[in-house]
Design a protein around this nucleic acid. Structure first.
Lengths: 347, 347
DNA sequence: CTGAAAGCGCTTACAG
DNA sequence: CTGAAAGCGCTTACAG
């Protein structure tokens, strides 16, 4: 089937391409009659402006680029969800790429997106990203960009994150309130800011409740795998005989920790309460169900798009570009792994 | 920073745009010296052809469209992964959309992708899709398309699926071989072909091992939620007192069924063996770990892209378009929920 | 109210 | 070996 173009309509109607174009865009200087004729014929021929031509003309693609470390993660796939949805609502489509936590891929993908001339970029940094020339290039080329979740202070642009410090604080406070006094913290590499902020929240909660901070209770995993959680908890049980709570930086680490606790004959939550972070799907399916911190992942995607489109608009209108740092609140989810009733009785 | 274009290079070198263009594309009729000059300057000015202009000229976008029911599902996010990776390798980027299992959204998204003039479309149908005019339109417009996983016979194009029948057969055969004789089958709505094919595999395995088919052992869930699995298993336990195996069409349903079994005091696998389908992340983390069928989701995405690009190429060369149906093999994963050793002893 | 013309940045058939 | 010209499909400032 041949695709209809303006010229086809113009020829059939015996008028100029200019007039057809204007009629379809409802210019005020075209007669109602002509507009009618054009509209009817365009409808009949199923005319759709060629986005190829329109984009070229307008120097915009109506496409956003998105780089995510790993799509398969529950957290990120929800963020993507939020981004695609919101973008679609605003008339943009999204090209999604995943860096696979590789710095090199991330660099390459930035290039791909710039080459493709996307109207804006949303990125969450890979774990390995420690230099930022590729992002500086984006800024230099004046392509609007928003960084989410895995951010850096080195780049000046809008960012959306969750309030990691406060979230961790709440999780630890929850453990303290149900009676925990020797709380292990299992975290990951401190490079992406998230881990660091959660550690700060952990410390602050302890301080506020007059529990001395003991750095031998903090275990840092190289990675975030199930096995790492098992290993960390095993080590903790070997090092200490009085732990009564575990706050892990990820639900998967917490799940591993629970497995280790069970293998050591510890009851959850009677002997040790456990709380994770992220509210993965599995967290309510394991036994006991895992308390955790829910992140507003969908909302994060939505906010990122909205910031990005604002910047795109501002640039078009040659207005001042303002950078924002949006911190989204989290929600504590109490489940069986930290039941207070049980904890209240003994001692 | 101003973006460099051919004209800039031409002016600086005092030659024509044509020559610059040809030099960069290594046309044989340009002198080595000119080529050198052009290349050096292009490099220096960081020249990148405007994809907007190139696409317009070539009438191709080097972008593929992808419509998936739900990104957040482990299965689909791996498929997406495979698609994006393979596409990137072949020089294509992917616009991902999700239909949210909504027929209306799916229709709208097809329109969006056609309007965007993507070079090809990969789609997995929503559960609600029962008419196919939107897909026929894609065919009519001669936009290459590949349907994956959730397919339909109504549309003539290449398709990639897993071999559902064989996979189900293997799962049920596994249960039979470890001694199960009264095997419950928990499935879903039979509309997408997958459920139907798995039911056929279930029946065939029973037949091959001389176990009579009893349709009161087949339970159909409206949806695929955790709770549906619980409900189905509860009902099965109420209806029958002799069941010794459960084959669920999804790991999540199987997980629900396991919860129901536990609540009824049944031991897994001693009293009832359970096997799921899909190999979700959670399946190896629950207790007991769940046997299941692993689908080649990444491979599926890869194959889909490869079929699609072949068709795109064939069309460009005005060759005959051939449609393929690729059936990918699955893999049985034996875990604790179907341990044979235990089963072998009693009776 | 209508239309001829220029232009977006590139590619390529053609002439010299 | 080089370059002028046409064209991809649209938009819009300008002339009439």
């Amino acid at each position: 089937m041949k695709v209809t173009k303006l010229k086809d309509i113009a020829q059939l109607l015996g008028i100029s391409v200019t007039t057809v174009s204007k009629a379809l865009k409802d210019y005020p200087d075209i007669s109602e009659e002509t507009k009618q004729n054009v509209r009817v014929l365009a409808e009949k021929l199923n005319y759709k402006p060629s986005s190829l031509a329109v984009n070229f003309r307008n120097k915009e693609t109506k496409i956003l680029g998105l780089i995510i470390p790993e799509i398969v993660h529950y957290f990120f796939s929800n963020v993507i969800d939020g981004i695609i949805n919101e973008a679609e609502k605003m008339g943009y489509l999204v090209i999604t790429l995943q860096s696979n936590e590789s710095f090199e891929l991330e660099q390459k993908q930035i290039e791909l997106l710039l080459d493709q001339r996307v109207d804006g970029i949303i990125i969450s940094l890979s774990n390995q990203t420690k230099t930022f020339d590729h992002l500086k290039k984006v800024i230099r080329q004046e392509t609007p960009m928003v960084i989410i979740d895995r951010i850096t202070d080195e780049i000046n642009c809008s960012k959306v994150i969750i309030d990691d410090e406060k979230a961790a604080y709440q999780a630890v406070e929850h453990l303290i309130k149900i009676g925990c006094k020797r709380i292990v913290h299992i975290n990951g590499p401190l490079i992406p800011k998230n881990s660091m902020d959660r550690l700060i929240g952990y410390k602050k909660a302890l301080a506020d409740y007059n529990i001395p901070y003991d750095d031998s209770l903090v275990y840092s995993c190289e990675q975030f795998h199930y096995q790492d959680g098992i290993d960390a908890a095993n080590q903790a049980l070997k090092d200490h005989n009085d732990i009564d709570g575990i706050f892990a930086i990820t639900d998967l680490l917490a799940t591993g920790a629970m497995t280790a606790l069970k293998n050591h004959g510890k009851r959850i939550p009677e002997d040790v309460s456990v709380i994770g972070f992220s509210n993965w799907r599995l967290s309510e399916l394991i036994t006991p169900s895992l308390s955790t911190v829910e992140q507003p992942n969908f909302e994060m995607g939505k906010q990122a798009v909205s910031l990005l489109l604002n910047e795109i608009k501002a640039r078009k209108e040659e207005k001042m570009i303002e950078n924002f740092l949006v911190k989204l609140p989290t929600k504590l989810i109490e489940r069986a792994s930290t039941k207070p009733t049980v904890k209240a009785n003994p001692s």
